[in-house]
């Protein structure tokens, strides 16, 4: 077996374990390539039956319109159920308070919306597209990752995970996050997208966009990011390496028009994909801190 066959087989095995072990599992769908690959794997795992998981999108209200268009088309194509958790609603109902200033982001607010959505629909397992190669705290996280009733991750007391035996037992009110593509790298994801001919949002390919430069990276010039007077808007040929909320998605100057171009670019690049993510730069252990509180 090639590495891609082996990774696919492992991920499908994990997704089937989720369907077998949980009452009400869901896929956390961001519209990024990783959650798209997870959804594709889930489709394969249960074909010709329908996807046994709804897609849950935590919407910050600051999405690229291409992401939403792609999401809706995919839901239609798969005949899947879509559930949207709205950060705007969390703000309006006073569950969270919006950050202000130039670097304001709704990234951290998503945690509350996510946990509220999990509680509202009583999801007992949320499948995510996180990978261990993305970030140092994620490198230590289990595939079946336990969350207590506050939605918290306890990195110091994780359940040992051996062979391919996954323990999804839990008490009422607790839940699991499950990461079927934990063992994939960014390159594996791109190679798999190429091999399986998976359609992606157009944002991943080079396009012309109004941008501005801040803290060493290009950001989209959209109303949801407040610009400083000296931050000039220019048109650039860019693409996204990862897709998140507009406020924390760095854009890469690129000439990649096809998946092959992207693979070649990924192979040559010297910066990690999360290097363009403002949310990770807030402190040395930004991801661990957010994950402990229930973040993706």
């Amino acid at each position: 077996m090639t590495h891609l066959n082996e990774l696919e087989a492992e991920s499908i095995y994990i997704l089937r374990e989720v369907a077998a072990q949980f009452q009400k599992p869901a896929i956390l769908f961001s519209g990024g390539k990783d959650s798209i690959v997870v959804t594709h794997l889930a489709y394969k795992a249960f074909y010709p039956a329908k996807l046994p998981f709804p897609l849950v999108h935590i919407d910050t209200g600051h999405n690229f319109k291409e992401t939403i268009e792609y999401r809706d088309a995919l839901v239609e194509k798969l005949g899947a159920q879509l559930i949207v958790g709205s950060v705007q609603e969390s703000i309006d109902t006073g569950r969270v308070k919006e950050e202000t200033g130039y670097n304001a982001s709704r990234n951290a607010l998503q945690t509350t919306t996510l946990l509220d959505t999990i509680e509202k629909y009583k999801f007992d397992a949320c499948i995510g597209g996180a990978r261990r190669d993305e970030e140092k705290a994620r490198a230590k996280e289990r595939i079946f990752s336990h969350r207590d009733e506050f939605g918290q991750w306890n990195p110091k007391n994780q359940r040992p995970e051996l062979w391919n035996i996954f323990n999804g037992r839990k008490n009422m009110g607790e839940h699991f996050r499950v990461f079927p593509i934990s063992n994939w790298t960014e390159m594996d994801v791109w190679q798999y997208i190429y091999k399986e001919n998976i359609e992606l949002p157009s944002l991943y390919y080079t396009h012309t966009r109004k941008c501005f430069f801040r803290d060493g990276q290009w950001l989209a010039a959209e109303d949801c990011i407040k610009r400083r007077p000296e931050e000039e808007v220019v048109e650039k040929e860019v693409r996204c390496r990862t897709i998140g909320d507009i406020t924390c998605t760095g854009l890469t100057l690129s000439k990649a028009h096809t998946i092959e171009d992207i693979i070649a670019e990924t192979a040559a690049t010297r910066v990690t994909e999360r290097g363009g993510r403002a949310d990770d730069k807030r402190s040395e252990t930004a991801m661990e801190d957010r994950k402990i509180n229930g973040y993706f």
């Binding site: 590495h3 261990r132 190669d133 970030e135 140092k136 705290a137 994620r138 490198a139 230590k140 990195p155 110091k156 994780q158 934990s182 063992n183 790298t185 390159m187 594996d188 040395e284 252990t285 661990e288």
Partner: peptide, 30 residues
């Protein structure tokens, strides 16, 4: 690079299993 958790970095020790990935043109390694 490998000691990713706060407690590990503070104490300068590895506590938990960490998974690392790299590839050469010949093989992919976990």
């Amino acid at each position: 690079l490998t000691d990713g958790l706060k407690a590990e970095r503070e104490q300068g020790i590895t506590i938990d299993v960490a998974y690392r990935y790299f590839a050469t043109p010949k093989r992919k390694f976990i």
